[in-house]
Design a protein around this nucleic acid. Structure first.
Length: 434
DNA sequence: TCTGGGGTCCTAGGACCC
DNA sequence: TCTGGGGTCCTAGGACCC
């Protein structure tokens, strides 16, 4: 038995924790560069704001409907997420943190009333962290996801599902007739693993509800669609095909990419951005104990703009797998020099690290002694770099090609509505007054 | 003026091997 | 009339997730 605990409208709820005056207000949280809406409170959803709606298209709602828009504050969300996760873990013996706002809990062997236990944990998260969440329970991860959807929807849209399924829903505890009614009332596109494309194909084939999908023959689904969808169908039928991931797997690729606050044309400015992205990526790489054998660098103009378009990427193989910021930045800059063309309005760039492997595995090679010594020294240098940036804050020690701190960089991100780092920055600590 | 960032898995097809 | 059989590795592209 699995439970899925999922924070409601997570980013929007995080913003409300320290600004209770936002309760009841329509809120959206904006992506980097204040580009588009990536989280919406229920009130904002009710205004008809779609996920991913461009900010300039919904801006007018500030005047007409009291919409509040905030720049994404990922330091805050990450910290509140950690707190929520540690409480959610109390539901059962094992937890998989699936995303910033969701975790699966293995409830195998948990005695007693699972629904009552879930309500208790839910109340605790609400009281101790301030985040409302929904909890879904089912025999497989896909069913737990579905139950979670029912729990949230029953709360948000009264009348959509039986009232007692709001907030916490255990599909496994429903009498067969009630379960069928719930499955029949849910669109097939709400199933975990069924996206827009497959959903359209299923509806076309007359499979429009979750009940219809559950009743399909798994082998037929495999033949007509894919092994991926077959797994989904089997999971809906109660056969677990997707295990709980007990330990987070090391990433196979690490990326750092950003859209710019303003269009960039000069190679020097792109080089600053690419240096920063490569440095961040290298740091993430060291954090998970990996080395990269290839560095990919890309630049592109904005597909939304009418000007001439240009988009290119290049993959630069490294002499030997490395996690050295200097080596990775140099490769990324060499890549940039190879693909850069003047005369374009660049909107985005990025660095990806590929062919990752553990840093504890070293390919043996013949090497001069001073070269080996140098590699050793560089590795210590990287450890020191990470330590300094951890202790004194990100960006304390950087590669010089990233540009000088304090100078306004033309490419830096736009974040005009950012809330304080209430729980992650001493200077931003909230003050309570009597 | 203005449209995010970071991932995973699966399949098909080509190149190549014996 | 009519060109084997069996396999691996790599890449691009599609689909999905939050």
């Amino acid at each position: 038995m699995y439970a899925l605990v999922d924070g409601n409208n997570f980013y929007a709820s995080c913003e409300r924790v320290f600004r209770p005056s936002l309760n009841g207000c329509p809120i959206v949280v904006l992506s980097n560069n204040d580009g588009c809406a990536i989280a919406r409170s229920n009130e904002a959803k009710a205004l008809g704001i779609a996920m991913g709606a461009p900010w300039f298209k919904i801006k007018h709602l500030v005047e007409t409907s009291g919409l509040v828009a905030l720049s994404a504050n990922f330091a805050l969300y990450g910290d509140l997420s950690d707190r929520m996760m540690s409480l959610a873990a109390g539901l059962g013996p094992a937890q998989e943190i699936y995303s910033i706002d969701e975790s699966f809990i293995d409830m195998t062997g948990v005695q007693g009333d699972l629904v009552a236990r879930s309500h208790k944990v839910r109340r605790r998260i609400l009281q101790w962290v301030g985040i409302p969440c929904g909890i879904g329970i089912g025999r497989t991860k896909t069913l737990a996801k579905l139950a979670n959807y029912v729990a949230k929807t029953a709360e948000r849209k009264p009348g959509s599902y039986p009232e007692h399924l709001a907030q916490v829903c255990n599909l496994d505890a429903l009498p067969p007739a009630q379960l069928e009614a719930v499955l029949a009332a849910t669109a097939v596109g709400e199933v975990w693993g069924v996206g827009r494309r497959i959903s359209a194909q299923l509806v076309e084939a007359g499979v429009s509800t979750v009940l219809d999908l559950t009743r399909l023959d798994a082998a037929t689904v495999r033949r007509r669609w894919s092994v991926v969808l077959e797994r989904t169908v089997r999971e809906l039928q109660g056969t677990a095909c997707i295990d709980l991931a007990h330990t987070p797997a090391a990433k196979q690729e690490i990326a750092c990419t950003r859209s710019f606050g303003h269009a960039v044309t000069a190679q020097a400015d792109l080089a600053e951005a690419v240096t920063e992205f490569a440095s961040r990526a290298a740091q993430k790489l060291r954090q998970q104990g990996s080395q990269a054998a290839q560095v990919l660098c890309f630049i592109r103009t904005s597909p939304f703009r009418p000007e001439a378009q240009y988009s290119r990427s290049i993959s630069v193989p490294l002499r030997r797998p490395s996690a050295d910021t200097g080596v990775i930045v140099a490769a990324a800059l060499a890549g940039l020099a190879a693909i850069y063309r003047p005369g374009f309005q660049y909107a985005k760039a990025g660095v990806m690290l590929l062919d990752l492997q553990s840093d504890r595995v070293q390919q043996g090679e013949l090497m001069f002694e001073d070269e080996a010594t140098e590699l050793q020294a560089r590795s210590h240098l990287m450890a020191t770099l990470d330590e300094l940036n951890l202790r004194y804050g990100r960006g304390t020690v950087v590669m010089a090609s990233a540009g000088l701190a304090g100078e306004r960089r033309v490419w830096s991100m736009k974040q005009e509505r950012r809330t304080p780092g209430y729980t992650t920055c001493w200077a931003d600590m909230p003050v309570a007054r009597a």
